Every structure is written in structure tokens, then in C-alpha cells.
Simulated assay, not measured.
Amino acid sequence: MSVSLMYEARRATPLTAAEAAEVERIVNAREASFPYPDEESCFFYDAGDRAPDAVLNGSTKLPFRPGRLFPVIAHVLDTVTELRRALPTAQWSVSTDDVPVPWDETEGYALAGMRDAELIAELSAIDEE
């Protein structure tokens, strides 16, 4: 059984050419900086796999390795935060399976502990056992 982060942006109007280009720029830049090539980063669904008013949606299957969990979550949520700021008129929904991820105007999307260096180090030690 796996846990996923899911994200979706909805609005009545489709993306403009400029917005689509900005989304592509953000996704490409964030993908290039993803730290684990053997893990899943942001995965965006094709337009045909979206609800009629969804302009962007996708999911990320979270890693099973404890030491990678929070770095992957942080990277994906930072990507979605950047996308939300690029598409401010959309209605956004971000969750881990059925649990909403909170939005903060200053910090963006975040989960408790996702940047806690000591916790990440402890979880990484489990990977090495």
C-alpha cells in the first residue's frame, strides 16, 4: 500500500499561453533539481485525464525509504506552492490521500517536520539499518 500527494488546480477558464509556459518552466526547473532520480517527483496528468474545469492536476507516490520521505514531500510541496503562486486565480486542492495539506500565504504548502534536519537524519539512519 502506498501513500500519495495529490494536487489539483481548477477554474472555469483554461490556461493562457503565458500561464502554460510559466507552468512548464516551473515544472522543468523543479524536476531538474529533484534529489532522487529513482523516486517519483511531480507527475502531472494529461488534459484528457482531468475534470472539465481542472487546469492542472497530478500526484506523487511517496517513497518507502524513511530518510527520503520528508525531502521528497518538501520538494513536491515547494513545486506545488510555486505553481499555485503562478496560477493565483485557480482553486487549489492538495492532500495526502484524503488529508488536506494546509496552505499558508507566507510558507505555502507544508507539513509539520518536513524540514526538520534532526528528524530527517534519524529517518535516514533507519534506511542504513
Rank of each mutant, 00 (worst) to 15 (best):
M1Y: 11
S2Y: 08
S4G: 05
R11D: 02
T16N: 03
A18E: 15
E19W: 12
A20S: 15
E22W: 03
E22K: 13
E22M: 12
V23F: 06
V27D: 11
R30H: 10
R30M: 01
E31G: 02
A32R: 15
A32I: 05
S33L: 15
S33C: 14
F34D: 06
F34M: 06
P35K: 11
Y36C: 13
Y36S: 02
D38G: 07
D38L: 11
E40W: 12
E40P: 08
S41Q: 11
S41R: 11
F44S: 12
F44I: 15
Y45E: 13
D46M: 10
A47L: 08
G48N: 12
D49W: 11
R50C: 11
A51P: 04
P52F: 06
A54P: 09
N57D: 15
S59N: 09
T60N: 12
K61W: 01
L62P: 03
L62W: 01
P63M: 02
P63D: 03
F64Y: 10
R65D: 02
P66N: 05
P66A: 06
P66K: 09
F70N: 13
F70R: 12
F70A: 09
V72N: 11
V72Q: 14
A74V: 05
H75M: 09
V76W: 13
T81F: 04
T81G: 06
R84N: 00
R85M: 05
R85G: 05
T89Y: 05
Q91Y: 02
S93Y: 10
V94A: 13
S95K: 14
S95W: 07
S95G: 12
T96G: 04
P100K: 04
P100M: 07
V101L: 06
P102E: 02
D104W: 07
E105Q: 08
T106V: 01
T106F: 01
E107I: 00
Y109T: 00
A110H: 04
L111S: 07
A112W: 10
A112K: 13
G113I: 02
M114N: 12
A117W: 00
E118N: 03
L119K: 15
I120Y: 08
E122I: 09
L123Y: 08
S124C: 00
S124F: 11
S124P: 02
S124D: 10
S124Q: 15
E129V: 13
